[in-house]
Design a binder for these strands. Structure first.
Length: 571
RNA sequence: GGACGGGUGGCCUAGUCUGGAUAUGGCAGCAGCCUCCUAAGCUGCAGGCCGGGGGUUCGAAUCCCCUCCCGUUCGCCA
């Protein structure tokens, strides 16, 4: 328990005790943080019960509370009980914890609970575009947060190597002669292959013969034709190679890749079919397709039937996804799926079907809205896209020119290495900073923002702190509260003390967009401190201030690590 | 038409779950700040009927009802 939690607990028991003394124990009340107090208790809700006005009640209660422990003062103001936290305790404890725990500061002890986080899982039919880029970034940030919350986290990508889209791609790659389509100039398999996907789609629409060939391939695929299946798998595998490169470029690495076709091959999708057929909700359409009726499971609308086989008995996407989730729960205690908002209904059907099958565990979903372009939706097929690779390149190039304009003492490689970190930081930050379900329109100047509320702003502060420590040389740690008398120091330390709470919220409540806001708060507090308080030039405060600089650097590193953003030591 | 999201200064955005004291931060704009630790920075100014209308409450951006706008979805697609 950190000093903040302890403070909150003590405020609670102090108010409880005071309420008991005036003969009204057990009344409910809120505790809130504000500018006026470290913790405030509004007394308005007591008014009715106590037949008195809130102002008087607050004053009566305040008189009954003697500050002690983490509470340094209580005041009644306008019907609020305003509690202030013991600053000395906060300062000492926060700084000492950071020094002692380092990169683990803000993390919770191991829980012994395994969480599977499935994210990205984009169709291997083209490069990742920014419309979908929220998925890996949110998913990876969530996974990192959960790790710090004490979970054993495994990340997983579900590769859809089944179905029409990959078959079309495979047909294109196998049948369209090299050189007859214009490949993208980028030398990366996903960018090379997408040209064939686009062309195959075009030919399929224009040429019935092609359409028939593709339909035939699809039939063979579903009949279990090993030749077709392995050709599709091979193509998907090649495409995936390119996607992995892109992901690695934004610091996203997944622990496991699971192939959809495996659930057909091992028969587990068929098992799902049998189990669902046996439930009391199951039925068959006139054509013989099987379904379960989900009207008792909160699915509304005219069609509440969830169909899980075609009329020829073959399985559907969601049927395989059910098998996949059953498999996940053999390996994990919890499963979280990061999904596009178009999956909302499907996800609900999946959960209901799992319930019908008697699964004890149900996946938790986290949704995001698609990023669109000012001119509308992105589409790989139509070529109306901004690829993530292009965004990264642009961000890195922009960072490169910034560095070039302000540094003349670095080699080309050094500058490029820093530029990569900054460009990626800008991209990741910009995407996680907004609430996932908010619709986002992609604009280059926003995506490439390096000022103010941005990743580079935080990285800059980190680099500043590093530079100061380098220049400082030897110094001793000092956490003596009396040495931190300046208001800017106190604000900064208070900000540092909040890391644990923010990580808890990001992981446990899946509110990852709290992390960038917090990083910005800490960085801004540091910049103010930096502008107003001399560090290296101070005499008696030097050790204390350098300790604060070091602690800030640690906290920023931890936040940036949670965000999957690198921390260059100079920039 | 139903379901589910989103609507907060010119632009982007936090806060909505768990109702509280002057609504968060940034971009763009204006005015200042580098003989001092990295100006990707700091300070100040200006900018808001929290989509609209009702209601509940001592108190509503937040809860309830209605309504408008935007997005997603309602396949024997994946």
């Amino acid at each position: 328990m950190d000093s903040r939690q302890r403070f909150e607990q003590e405020v609670g028991s102090a108010v409880d005790a005071a309420l008991e003394k005036i003969g009204s124990p057990g009344l409910r009340y809120a505790k809130e943080v504000s500018d006026m107090a470290d913790l405030a208790v509004p007394c308005f809700s007591f008014s009715k019960e106590l037949r008195s006005d809130p102002k008087t009640i607050a004053e009566r209660l305040a008189a009954l509370i003697v500050p002690s422990g983490a509470i340094s003062s209580v005041k009644a103001v306008n019907g609020y009980l305003n509690f202030m936290m013991d600053e000395a305790l906060l300062i000492k404890e926060t700084l000492e914890r950071i020094l002692a725990e380092g990169s683990a500061y803000g993390s919770m002890p191991r829980k012994g609970v395994t969480v599977n986080v499935e994210h990205t899982s984009t169709n291997p039919t083209g490069p990742i575009h920014v419309g979908r880029a929220r998925n890996p970034i949110i998913g990876d940030t969530l996974a990192r947060s959960l790790k710090r919350c004490g979970y054993d986290v495994r990340t997983e990508y579900y590769v859809n190597d089944v179905g029409k889209q990959v078959v079309i791609l495979t047909w294109g790659v196998n049948n369209i002669p090299k050189g007859s389509v214009e490949e993208e100039e980028r030398d990366k398999t996903d960018h090379k292959l997408v040209a064939y996907y686009r062309e195959a789609n075009k030919r399929m629409e224009e040429d019935d013969g092609v359409k028939e060939q593709i339909a035939d391939m699809l039939r063979k695929f579903e009949d279990g034709d090993n030749g077709v299946i392995s050709r599709v798998r091979e193509t998907a595998e090649a495409m995936l190679g390119g996607l992995k490169e892109t992901l690695a470029g934004i610091n996203v690495e997944l622990d496991k890749y699971t192939w959809e076709s495996d659930f057909i091959a091992d028969g587990s999708a068929k098992d799902v079919v049998e189990r669902l057929k046996g439930s009391k909700y199951s039925g068959q359409t006139d054509d013989g397709a099987w379904y379960v009726d989900l009207k008792d499971f909160g699915i509304q609308g005219k069609n509440t039937k969830f169909i899980f086989t075609r009329s020829d008995g073959t399985t559907l996407y969601t049927t395989r996804d059910l098998a996949y989730h059953l498999d996940k729960f053999k390996r994990a205690d919890r499963a979280i799926d990061v999904l596009g908002e178009d999956q909302k209904l499907g996800s609900k059907q999946l959960c209901s079907a799992l319930e019908i099958m008697g699964s004890e565990k149900i996946p938790e979903a986290m949704f995001y809205s698609f990023v669109s372009l000012p001119e509308g939706k992105m589409s790989t097929r139509k070529g109306v896209v901004v690829y993530l690779d292009d965004l990264i390149d642009e961000a890195v190039a922009r960072a490169m020119s910034e560095i070039r304009s302000r540094r003349d003492d670095l080699s080309e490689e050094e500058m490029l290495s820093i530029a990569r970190k900054i460009g990626i930081g800008a991209v990741r930050y910009n995407i996680v900073r907004v609430h996932p379900e908010k619709q986002l329109v992609f604009k280059w100047d926003e995506a490439l923002n390096f000022d103010g509320n941005s990743g580079p702003y935080i990285q800059y502060v980190h680099a500043r702190a590093c530079s100061m420590m380098k220049k400082a040389g030897e110094y001793g740690h000092c956490t003596e509260p009396a040495m931190f008398a300046d208001e800017y120091e106190k604000v900064l330390i208070k900000a540092l003390s909040k890391l644990g709470g923010v990580i808890r919220e990001a992981g446990e409540e899946k509110r990852v967009h709290m992390l960038p806001a917090y990083g910005h708060e800490v960085a801004a507090a540091f910049n103010q401190f930096y502008a107003m308080v001399p560090v290296l030039a101070s005499d008696e405060n030097r050790d204390a201030r350098l300790t604060l600089v070091e602690c800030t650097r640690t906290v920023l590193r931890n936040v940036l690590d949670c965000l999957g953003i690198d921390c260059p030591e100079e920039m």
